[in-house]
Amino acid sequence: MIEVRFHGRGGQGVVTSAYLLALAAFKEGKFCQAFPFFGTERRGAPVTSFARIDKKFIRTRERVYNPDYVVVLDSTLLDVVDVDEGIKERGMIIINTNKDVNLQTKATVKTVDATDIALRVIGKPFVNTSMIGALVGATGIVKLESVIDVIRERFPEEIANKNIEAEKQTYEKIRG
């Protein structure tokens, strides 16, 4: 079972990120589970969401405590939230930032400037789809095409196209 934890702030699409990943896994015939933990429901408050992917039905309902991958949508959270908490030995943390990150962790750390890409392509700092692109590019847990299909189904055409373009750019960028 692959477990992913997303960190971000209310309004950034943290919950959508986990849902998109789960739906993409579902498209590939895998079992999946995605759910949020809301803080107070307001913009800017720290929000966490979780996704699980497995070959069989996922029974557990506890939150993800030992993630394989952690995705940080907002680097200002690094001072507030322990994003490294419980991460597996061979885990990976992917952070949206344009700065050098000095994070004490046993996991691999990768960074991508998703905000810049989102601003240029979408015109707004909505980084959920770009960060999914980075996650998929760095880990290959689902296919890029599966996420694209899900985005097409979920958003109106114009918005979908922009999000898919942003997702492709982060996907390529993180793969170098």
């Binding site: 986990a18 999946c32 759910f35």
Partner: peptide, 12 residues
């Protein structure tokens, strides 16, 4: 059905 745990969960 449990609020959030089931109502806000995406699963097959």
């Amino acid at each position: 059905m449990d609020g959030f745990i089931l109502t806000h969960t995406v699963e097959p």
